[in-house]
Design a protein around this nucleic acid. Structure first.
Lengths: 339, 339
DNA sequence: ACTCATATTGGCAGCGCTGCCAACCGAAAA
DNA sequence: TTTTCGGTTGGCAGCGCTGCCAATATGAGT
């Protein structure tokens, strides 16, 4: 019983409305609204009276009501494949900084790399009438694309530029990354190259890197010698396991390309544990440019991607209501010491 | 000009309302509402007619309006210190799974470990009238606590149990973690112990671990020999740097406790690079139980924390509208090979 | 003192949906 | 035939705020 009483008291507290503030301040509702949003004109003493009442009553504006009444929503919806893959927290981090500065609010949901789930979650997001929906890459179901197009809200596709954008795209070319990785290894003189990766049907961006990587090797007349694809998400452990399996099958590799740095670190540790010397016996090349790659005894050779910047720029474009466009942030090849 | 026309078309598309669906289906608004929420009673043929109209018009319910009209909001607000520290993405991951299953929506913002910012962001969150606000730990400003208490919405404090909860708390005791870490090292025979950590004023949970760790050493009559605190967030690079500095000052340490696994990995790599043999010359102990700690050549000795489970349980309690309580999920000491 | 432009202000109709309530519709019961 | 009752259904008043517009106040100019 004291529980329910408490609840009621809470409810009462929570329920201070604009109208009550207006009454307490002895002004009209619209005046309070103008003062709080600092929009329109009002006198200094009015402002003080209103602020005093707000303070006294502990008024917290109701954004739900505000959003319904006005037009734009200041909500930005992220539909991301994963939170385990550090890429996405990094993007969110970049975006949230900019969004918070501009009083936007981020909402998110996680698709687990499942296009069907992406469609369902995108629909759920649209129900909040966000200012923008941000998703990873270009590979969406027909339904998702149709829905987004029809929604009238801005759409930002992140971390990929190899395809046609629905509206805005911010990122870099994964195909170019795969190509440059291969070119680098070839330039360094490696010829018997293998690959260790995770599920490419789900992570289509990793798939694009892999296929361009292979094409580049083919064009050079030194095709990929062997590859090992592990089910499940990328992880250090899987990288280690993958390299172990790959080397069991292909003993004479001189370099291995990994789907990303997590996997590459696993490979690095495998070599460390097995006494395989890097890069003289085996070279290792990753993707992402994680900080940890610089802290291991031999800095990891990899490609550094602008993950945080991708989030920042995407958010800035939305805040500024920029026209449709594709922004190429590029990437940086880190020579490192492992290849 | 074609741009503005496009916008208008979009707007038109986006603007399908419940009333239009009702009209198209030849039924009343409330009937459509009942069918869509599968709540209340309606006949089978009515259901079909409504669903057909929804499909035909591409209707997406407006949750903003729905939330305003009804009472509870199905929004859960996360106010987290950081997205760089993997702890928080892990918690979000656990929570988002449960929330999505229950048609709740997660919103978040990042305080950057700043209590003042936390207060501002919590206020902004409250404006969305969420069903619950989830924050890290117990250390909030007076203002934050007061505001949350007055808000009438559920509050969940995560990842800490050493203090008094506002409402619900889910996590484990950081003090116990510090204590057990020290006890483990002592049990193993280490006596000249050092510490490498990051900014403890900001990360108060790391601070609690550190102080309990020291108390335990003191109680044993073998106080901490030296410590090195680095400004800025925890990172592998800082761990490496920290250990380097620590060893420069205290040459005869036999074990080092790190504020978390990131830092510990940095220390591990430093030893690897310097040829310091682990654990015979120097033992290393971390905190968090990251996967990568198991993949390095010598598995890291550490404490594994239930980060994902913390998010899951917290979300479940909110979904179930559980009464105020503190849930201790405990942690697991991993003996590893580095201490 | 009188006029007119400008600065302030309040009233009120929605935004799109939910919740309540009255109305309606057979079919079973009287 | 009339009454009864549960299953269905539509109408409509808000939820709390914003945007528009009319009303009032202020102040400078003559």
């Amino acid at each position: 019983m004291s529980g329910s009483k408490l609840t009621m008291e809470f409810k009462h507290q929570a329920t201070v409305t604009l109208a009550e503030v207006a009454e307490a301040a002895g002004v009209g509702e619209s005046t309070v609204s103008r003062v709080l949003r600092n929009h329109g004109s009002f006198s200094g003493k009015t402002r003080e009276r209103v602020m005093a009442a707000v303070e006294r009553l502990g008024y917290v504006p109701n954004r739900i009501a505000g959003t319904l009444a006005s037009t734009g929503s200041r909500l930005v919806a992220f539909v991301i494949p994963s939170l385990s893959n550090i890429v996405f927290p990094d993007v969110l981090r970049g975006a949230s900084t900019v969004l918070e500065e501009n009083r936007y609010q981020a909402v998110f949901s996680v698709t687990d790399y499942d296009p069907g789930k992406e469609e369902a979650l995108a629909a759920a997001m649209l129900a909040w009438r966000p200012a923008a929906v941000m998703l990873a890459g270009y590979e969406h179901t027909e339904g998702t694309a149709k829905m987004l197009r029809a929604s009238g809200c801005r759409v930002v596709e992140l971390l990929d530029l190899d395809g046609d954008a629905l509206d805005i795209a911010v990122g870099f070319s994964n195909r170019a990354a795969g190509r440059e990785s291969a070119a680098f290894l070839l330039r360094r003189g490696y010829r018997r190259i293998g690959y260790v990766g995770h599920d490419l049907n789900r992570d289509t961006r990793a798939g694009k890197r892999f296929s361009s990587f292979c094409e580049t090797l083919d064009a050079n007349g030194t095709p990929l010698v062997a590859h090992e694809i592990l089910a499940g998400p990328s992880s250090v452990e899987n990288g280690r396991l993958g390299l172990e399996r790959l080397l069991a099958r292909a003993t004479d590799l001189d370099a291995v390309y990994f789907s990303n740095d997590d996997m590459a670190l696993g490979g690095y540790f495998h070599c460390l544990a097995q006494g395989i010397s890097i890069p003289s016996q085996l070279a290792i090349f990753g993707y992402n440019g994680l900080d940890i790659g610089r802290a291991i005894p031999q800095p990891l050779s990899t490609i550094r991607t602008p993950r945080v910047a991708t989030g920042e720029i995407a958010a800035q474009l939305i805040v500024a209501n920029a026209p449709p466009q594709a922004v190429d942030l590029g990437f940086e090849l880190i020579e490192g010491a492992t290849a």
